[in-house]
Each structure stands twice: as C-alpha cells, then as structure tokens.
Design a binder for these strands. Structure first.
Lengths: 335, 335
DNA sequence: ACCAGGACTTAAAGCGCTTTAAAAAGTTCT
DNA sequence: AGAACTTTTTAAAGCGCTTTAAGTCCTGGT
C-alpha cells in the first residue's frame, strides 16, 4: 500500500544533506553551479531516500513542460510502431511523451483536449481525421505535426510517406519479375487511396502497360479484397499479379484465390501495402511496402522541436520514400 | 503557433466576472457553494475565454491526482482493447489514465517510473513480466493491480480470466460436436500455458477421453502451430480436432493442414484462444475464446478505486470466466 | 591588509490551481 | 429592528518544484 505522506520531497533531500532546496534542484537536474562535493552528497541522499521528482510540480514551476502530446489510435499496429520510435526520438532530445488514445467512445477532440490539459507543448497527431480548419485552430494553441496524412494548403507540419511512390515500387518489382497483366484493388475514396491509385496508374504507364491498367473497386478491408478476387475469377481472364491498397485487402485477395484453387504465388502474385503484422505471418508471407515508422517518428519529433526550440514558424512537409519489402507472395511470372 | 502567454488562467476568468478565483474554481469543478447566478456567469466567461484548467496545477494543488497509471505493451492488440475499456471505466468514476508503454527500448521499470513521476495514485499493469517481489516493492509506493497474469502469494490485486476453464469450454464445444480425438498444441512454460494445458487435460478426463489426451509441444507462435501440425500429419493418424494455446498457434496449425490438403473444418476442426484480431479474419474465421477485455478493465479500475477511495487493504483476486466464441473453424465431426 | 572577481549557495517569489477558515450578505423570526 | 442563522464569497496559505537576484566564501593581486 502507498503510505500517503511518505513520498519524499525535494525538501526532505535538502534537509538530509543540510542544503537548500535550490541546490538540490540544481544538482538533480544536472544544472551547472553546484560543486562536485555537493553534487555527490545530494545524489547519494536522493538515492537513499528513493527520491523521485514530481513531474507536475516540476512542469508547473518551470514555464516549460517538455511534453509532446501524441494522439494515437490504439488499435493500429502501425501506430504502435510509431509510438515506440517516438519515445526514443523524444527522449534523445529531452522531451517526454503523453499519449492519448482515440477510441470509439473517445473522439479526437477529447483526446486532444486531454493532451492540452497536460500542457503538451506540441501535438503529434497520428492519422488525424479532423478537417483541416479544425487542425489549424488547434495549431494556434500548440504547434501541430500531422503524421501519415497528406494535407494541402495548411500551415501545419506534415510527415508522411510517398504513397504513389510505394505502389510504384510494387509495380516495378512485379514488372521486374516478368509480369505485365497487373491488376490493382483500390482503397476507396480518401487521400491515401487516391495517391496509391495514382501511383499504380503512373507506374503502369511508365512501363508502357497502359493497356493492362485494371483498377478494381475496393476499400481497406479483407472483404473488399475477396470481392475483387471473385470478380477477377468470374471475369475469365486472371491477371498474373494483383497489387492491393493495403495488406488486409491483399489477404482477402490471397485467400479468395487460394480457395478457388489458384496458386499464390504460383499462378498469381499478390502484393499488399503497409507491412503490418499480418503480412509477416508465414502463412501469408506477403510482399508489401513498409512505411518506415522509425523515420517518420524521428521527423515528427524533429519538426516539433524545431518549432519549439528553434523558432521555426514556416510549415514543413516531409515526404519519405516507402520501402519495398519482398516476401513470398510474389514470384516470377510463370510461363 | 502557440501564443506563449495566451493561455487563459483561472485568474483571467475571475477578473472577467469580477469574482475571486476561489469562486471560479468552485464553479468549474461543480463543487457546491456558488449561487446559480454566479455559476452561469462563470461558465459563460470560461467558455468565452476558452478556458481550460491546467491539470498539473490542479493536481498539484489538490493533494490527489485522480490518475491511474497504466503500463501497456503497445504492440498487443489485446492490450489495446483493454486500454479502451479502462478509459471508459476510469472516466465513469472520475479518474483519468496516464499510459506508459513498454517497448524493446523501454523496459517495465522505466515505464513504471514514468507512471509514478506523473503521480499516478495506483498502477494497473497489463501482463507485467517482473517477478513478484519487484511488484510487491512497487505496491508499497502505490497500489498495484495486475491484469492477466496469475500471481500467488502476494498481496497484490489480480484480475484475470480462468484459462483452464477457457480451454475446458473449447473441449466441451468440440466434444459436443462429436469429436473425441482432440489434440492440444501447448504454449510452452509460463503460468498461462500451464493453466491452459491443465484445462485441456481436465476437460478431456471429464468427458472420459483420457485415452485421447495428446499434448503437442509448442509455444505462442504461428511457427509452433505449423510444426505441431506437421508432426500430426507425419504421425499417420490425424485427430479430428485440434485446440491450440492461442490464436497465432492455431493459425499455424490451420495453415499447415490446409497446405497439406486437409480440409478445415471439413476433416479437422481447429480452435484457438484469445479472440485476437487475427481470429476474426474471414479467411481464418477461427473458433476461439474471448478474454472479455471490458470486464477485466472494469474490475481492474474497481480494484484500484476500492484501494484508493474505500480503504480496502486486503488483496483481492478476480477470476473471470472466459467466453467461447464459435466461428467457422470448428464443425461437427465428419462421419 | 584590502578589494575585485570567481565559485557556490540560498532566500524568496512564483507556476496555476485547491482549500479552508472566516468575512460578507441574505433570510427568517421574534 | 436585532438576534440567529444560512447561504455566498473570498483572503490567504499552500501543493512541490524552478529560478533569479542576492548573498557568502575564497582566491589572488596590489
């Protein structure tokens, strides 16, 4: 049980070494001033007492909080990766993270309010859905860094990967394997889907495969992938490769094809997008595109810190190149 | 951009309505005292100014923090579910959550330190790995609630599901479908694996199927499931049903069987455990056991609140019954 | 000796809010 | 009208820490 009054305070440490709280504070934060002797004694005393600074009090007293608010969808495996890297990146520059999750019951607004209530100095929003002007309003309270979503015409910082390029890499890879008849399962409306679709079209044209362009209706779900595959199966002529909007959809395609007796990748190669946990399952072993969570996290933190500590005020967009991850679901076109 | 000095303070609101900060504070927290007229005026002023209390200051001033620290493995989909429900449960009793993730780079210790630095009044640890005495030491600083892990002989509160019962339900279900030859793919050492294995054995005996008990070596991975399945395939006589330690392993089994031309559930039924996102994929449609995240979350919060607000000091263990979720991977035994 | 200057240390004033004791304002009753 | 309350409001003292201006001590130079 917690012994209510037992938590040692700065004053207790100070009393123990017979110094002022000011000196102790200085030592504990590694600030210059205290002599070596004092430093040692204070550190010893603090350790003896198991002293741990009260963040709230520290933050309140210093005008800064050195806290970055991160809004994350706790259900997304990709966000999980991002958070992990955000943690390390933030730590390196002396910031701490406060997370707030948006869930069915807790919308973006509440999540962000919580972040602000904790005095976050900047907000890193992972895949926010709110409209641009809402985010701009927020930006007036604290610098906002949007991760993973394209945003045009705002003054917000944006960190994302080049989705069109990613699909382009998939197409290049497939073409390199000898495929020419490459279908694409679309991801619906939405900025990301649009970019990826364009990436597919552009890449196909680049390879002189204009005639082969074939976009199937779909969305981000497994079911959509299955529907698209069934459509292909019914349509008579199967393409030799299928690229999908994301991994989930790709898995739908893969499952439906396999169930219909079409070998993957033997007869048809299948590729996804996102490199999420699913794609790594050995039973799928899906060739996909990785969104380089670490790089995105680093850039997001850097963007925030530049605003906070270096007075940058101009918006900046960082667009990272995605990385093709070849696994077992794609192979050379069969004769 | 954040306009540094712009954040309105309690004092600003007070000045605007010509009252003391004390009155404003009272109104804003819904405390009794202020008259209706005052209340309205204050609320209006606060809204006009876009005032939002500074949590740090509030927490520091009140001796309480009303904060529950939650340690979560950000990569676990099950934890994600738990967090979501913890949020709502905590909100209902007027607490807020502060999350700290353990990752490869951030071990449990640091995660928990962060939680304490934020002045969490109690700690809810999701699937902690630390040894019992470490947790007990922590418990002396703040009440600890362990979720999802069995802990004997400690004074900690524990909330978990009855793993043996869960596997028992799976066996019952399979037996109900006419299966008698039911193999089990083990989950290795570890408390949870032990419980589930025992659940399997007990249930089999209860149905008079002692002779049929067959435990295959395994762990928590998909690969283990595949190995086990291959072993079954090589062994000559296939069981008519296989229950696995968890969903991942079950999926390995399922994939290996399918690949070998064994129809699932046509020839062999397969069941998993955990009801994680994987099992819901239509291409698997895995019969599994749900750990009832919501109920566990509620009990965890309740346990913490009882310690905090109702002075409970005796340890309590809440063991919830898991819930069988029947999907498409199990069916009546073929003739 | 005496003082400038450097090296440490500390008193004291907050940070923005809660809380409590006490004052102020209203009511009711005789 | 004044006593005896009750309802509102507020002054002031913190919460645990940071920060800055102001010391206190030494050293060495003259």
């Amino acid at each position: 049980m917690a012994d209510a009054g037992s938590r040692p305070r700065l004053e207790d440490v100070a009393a123990r070494v017979g110094l002022s709280t000011a000196s102790v504070s200085l030592v504990l934060r590694g600030a210059p001033g205290p002599s070596e002797r004092t430093r040692q004694r204070v550190l010893k005393a603090a350790a003896d007492l198991g002293y741990q600074a009260d963040r709230n009090a520290s933050l309140l007293a210093s005008r800064r909080s050195r806290l970055l608010g991160v809004m994350v969808d706790v259900h997304s495996p990709f966000h999980a990766d991002l958070v992990e890297h955000l943690h390390t990146a933030a730590e390196e520059v002396g910031y701490d993270l406060v997370l707030s999750t948006q869930t069915r019951s807790r919308d973006e607004h509440t999540a962000v309010e919580t972040l602000l209530a904790f005095r976050s100095e900047a907000l890193i929003l992972l895949g926010p859905l709110a409209p641009a002007d809402t985010l701009m309003a927020l930006h007036r309270k604290a610098p906002v860094v949007v991760v993973g979503r394209r945003m045009t015409g705002t003054e917000l910082d944006v960190v994302r990967t080049a989705d069109d390029d990613g699909v382009g890499q998939i197409v290049d890879h497939l073409v390199g394997l000898g495929h020419r008849s490459i279908a694409y399962v679309d991801g619906g409306k939405g900025v990301i889907a649009t970019d990826r679709r364009r990436g597919y079209r552009t890449a196909m044209r680049r390879h002189g495969l204009d005639e082969q362009i074939r976009v199937l209706h779909g969305d981000h779900t497994e079911a959509a992938g299955e529907r698209a595959a069934r459509q292909l199966l019914d349509g008579g002529q199967l393409p030799t490769a299928v690229a999908a909007f994301n991994d989930q959809s790709a898995i739908g395609v893969l499952a439906a094809l396999t169930r219909a007796g079409v070998a993957v990748p033997g007869a048809v190669s299948v590729a996804g997008y996102d490199d999420d946990a699913l794609s790594r399952l050995s039973c799928f072993s899906l060739t996909t595109v990785s969104q380089t969570a670490e790089a995105q996290a680093r850039h997001a933190v850097t963007a925030a810190v530049e605003r906070l500590d270096e007075g940058r005020t101009a918006a900046r967009e960082v667009v990272l190149p995605p990385r093709l991850t070849v696994r077992g679901s794609t192979t050379v076109k069969s004769a």
